[in-house]
Amino acid sequence: MSLLQVDRLVAGYEPGLPIVRGASIRVAPGEIVAVLGPNGAGKSTLIKAIAGLVLVESGEVRFGGQDLRQLPAHRLVRAGLAFVPQTENVFANLTIQENLELAGFFLGRRRCQERVRAMFELFPDLARQRALPAGRLSGGQRQMLAVARALLVEPGMIMLDEPSAGLSPRLVAEVFAKLAEVRAEGTTILMVEQNVKAALALADRAYVLAEGREHLSGSAAELASHGDLASLFLGGANR
């Protein structure tokens, strides 16, 4: 039984100009699945299409049996699917505390405060700077805040778009360690990555996306030893 099931998805920014061209993906409960692929392969577009943020022309997206295409994008997080975009993933004009409180606004006041406290325990760095506008945070701290914002609502699954982008190797390790913790608590993870090594080290399974479709898929270990992977990233399929 998959938690997330994407079938023959066709999606893009303008009608008739699909970027994602028939991608199919499955994520089982408790799994960490990575979507890899060269720059411009359509990874971000795929994940945004799942989140309901770009135009879906055809195909199916099901989450826990629910048809996500019928759900307005802003209801997704209430249905248990949280999303951390690649860039611009915090409200720079709100403080850290306001960012977190806003994320939990539909939980009710009491529960929301509880969850904010829990996030501050999980990310002590953020707790120390709670009154600071998020725009003043460093790249790594922003990424942490974005993850915290998504986790605050205790989603069944979170989707992350390149959580390692722009971070130093030390910070990547830190973020990925947090993600491992999160999964240990039972949260399913789908992440898009260009940092193949780090992603395959963390993930259980991975898909390689090229030209808007999955090109390869398999367990992380299989893919890590796959010869085609290198050529793919050196531009073979990347027009």
């Binding site: 989140a51 802003h74 997704l76 975009p85 409200f91 004009n93 806003l102």
Partner: peptide, 24 residues
């Protein structure tokens, strides 16, 4: 107020606001 903060959030980034569960 939540609505007031949601307004500031939408002003900053409507797409992120949607992701956060705000009905833009």
């Amino acid at each position: 107020a939540t609505l007031g903060r949601a307004m500031r959030a939408v002003a900053h980034n409507p797409q992120l606001a949607t992701v956060t569960g705000i009905d833009v």
